[in-house]
Design a protein around this nucleic acid. Structure first.
Length: 484
RNA sequence: GGCGGCAUAGCCAAGUGGCUAAGGCAGCGGUCUGCAAAACCGUUAUUCACCGGUUCGAAUCCGGUUGCCGCCUCCA
């Protein structure tokens, strides 16, 4: 079963065929580190995290490159405002990136290059473009000439004439064509700068990705990813430069994720709905956020609404309840007990169906549908038969199904926690619990129940409910849990 | 002005030519329970924004209408 990916450059799904058998080169545009990451960055990063995980699960040898843009106008501006060195500011927000994304279960990429470490290469590429006649200088600036490259616009499906006709951009007189873009930008006094043949300055916006992808993946590589908004002009420009300088095909597949809105509005500082990962984590468990961001197909726009996230949380709770029930029956299935190796060998009908779904352009929403089907099925198996017991046959089947489910979860970066821990974390922000007090009340209620004093029993249950404690009376006695 | 996307039940969301339109949340009925909780079973779209067309057959393809959104300028 072949993996199909939607290739933005041809606007169609295509069967993915790697450049080199068994290997995947993946380059994804990371973040510009001048502020905290928001929920939209989280979506993009998680989507490509899942893509990389999935390729690995399918046995590909993946080289995943995700960059940091650590030099740019916004960083300089922000640094000035905060009276910090741009480098220091960038480092701070790189740390914040790791902290936030780490909580969301995002794995490190194989290579995480920073633009400022590649300035030499960028100067070199600019020089190549000059030498080959694709670029020109004007003052201390170097521009890429879009007219010099006939393929310009083909990635994003535009042509220069149409854009010229509708352009609202104030035309920079120094540019020969309004769409020409900067390769090298002369520095103003006090700004970060590097010496170059054209005088002190810094690289233009698009150059770093051309250089770093070339360095780590070569002039032709498999997949280039990023947010939908990067398609134009960033990726168009990046591709033009790379094709002209590196003699390759550049990226063969272009994958772009859709945007996140918040309560139906585009995120913006002025609307005050700029939702950082950090703020979202104050309200929601990280796996709830991750599940939410994967609950819709990655190319579709996704609206972050408190109500919908709460709904998804109920679903995740159901999954973890089943996993906990399973643990009680079979013993833990995560952590030390099951080694990575045995889990990665887990296969069967469910896992195959899951992969089929993921093969279809990474249909995580459909795959989650399968997960919920499986949860119901496993709960059914755990419901006692006529003799009040679970059969041996059911037990062994459950073991295999859990392995498959957790393996799928590994790919999605979900269901990775110990269930007890999960529920504790989910409940803890809202409630202070006094375990002794709860235990005492539960015991008192149990005695009342033995005496068939239902009135007292129910009063205590209501009292506990007030405290955020839910009771479950079972054949082995009463258990309690924090309401979530 | 140019280019592109989306419209599926109360809400969220799969499905893109053909058996009964996944799944989740919420609701309702039932099993279990002293009553609950949890779990399970059943149920909630003769219908996929609207109008035409192609086809033996369309939510799925084509044309038009309406509505929403994105990109064209830094942006995941």
């Amino acid at each position: 079963m072949p993996l199909k990916l939607y290739n933005s450059s041809i606007r169609k799904k295509e069967v993915f065929k790697p450049l080199n058998d068994g290997k995947v080169g993946l380059y994804v545009c990371g973040v510009t580190v001048y502020d905290l990451c928001h929920i939209g960055h989280a979506r993009s990063t998680i989507v490509f995290d899942v893509l990389a995980r999935y390729f690995r699960a399918r046995g590909y040898d993946v080289t995943y490159v995700r960059n940091f843009t650590d030099i740019d106008d916004k960083i300089i501006e922000r640094a000035k405002l905060l009276k910090k060195a741009p480098k220091e500011l960038a480092r701070e927000f790189i740390d914040a990136f790791y902290e936030d994304m780490g909580k969301l279960g995002v794995l490190k990429a194989d290579v995480e290059p920073r633009a400022t470490d590649y300035v030499e290469d960028m100067i070199e590429m600019t020089q190549t473009l000059m030498d080959r006649g694709y670029a020109y200088t004007e003052g201390g600036d170097v521009y890429f000439s879009v007219d010099s490259y006939p393929g310009y616009g083909s990635l994003s499906g535009r042509n220069l004439e149409d854009m010229r006709a509708g352009s609202r951009v104030a035309v920079d007189d120094r540019k020969r064509h309004p769409m020409d873009f900067v390769l090298w930008k002369s520095a103003k006094p006090g700004e970060p700068q590097w010496p170059s043949p054209w005088g002190p300055g810094r690289p233009g916006w698009h150059l770093e990705c051309s250089v770093m992808s070339n360095r780590h993946l070569g002039p032709t590589f498999d997949i280039h990813g990023g947010g939908r908004d990067l398609l134009f002009p960033h990726h168009e420009n990046e591709r033009a430069q790379s094709m002209c300088a590196n003699d390759g095909e550049f990226a063969r597949y272009w994958v772009h994720n859709g945007f996140v809105t918040v309560e139906s509005e585009k995120m913006s500082k002025s609307l005050g709905n700029f939702l950082t990962i950090r703020d979202a984590l104050k309200k929601y468990h990280p796996e709830v956020l991750r599940l939410f961001l994967l609950s819709k197909h990655y190319r579709s726009p996704l609206d972050f609404s408190a109500k919908d996230v709460a709904n998804l949380q109920s679903g995740l709770v159901r999954i973890y309840r089943m996993l906990q029930r399973l643990n009680d029956l079979l013993g833990p299935g995560d952590g030390e007990k099951t080694s990575e190796d045995s889990l990665s060998g887990a296969s069967g009908e469910f896992y195959e169906k899951f992969c089929e779904m993921m093969d279809d352009d990474l249909n995580t929403a459909g795959a989650l549908g399968l997960v919920f089907d499986k949860v119901r099925e496993m709960n059914r198996l755990m419901d006692p038969d006529g003799n009040g017991a679970v059969s041996e046959k059911a037990l062994s089947s459950l073991k295999s199904q859990r392995d498959q489910l957790l393996r799928a979860g590994e790919i999605l970066g979900l269901f990775q926690q110990n269930p007890a821990e999960f529920f504790e974390q989910l409940a803890s922000p809202s409630k202070d619990v006094n375990t002794d007090e709860i235990e005492a009340l539960v015991k008192k209620r149990s005695q009342a129940r033995v005496a068939k004093d239902w009135a007292l029993s129910d009063t205590i249950r209501d009292q506990l409910k007030e405290m955020g404690v839910v009771l479950e009376d079972g054949p082995q006695g009463t258990t309690w849990r924090l309401d979530v």
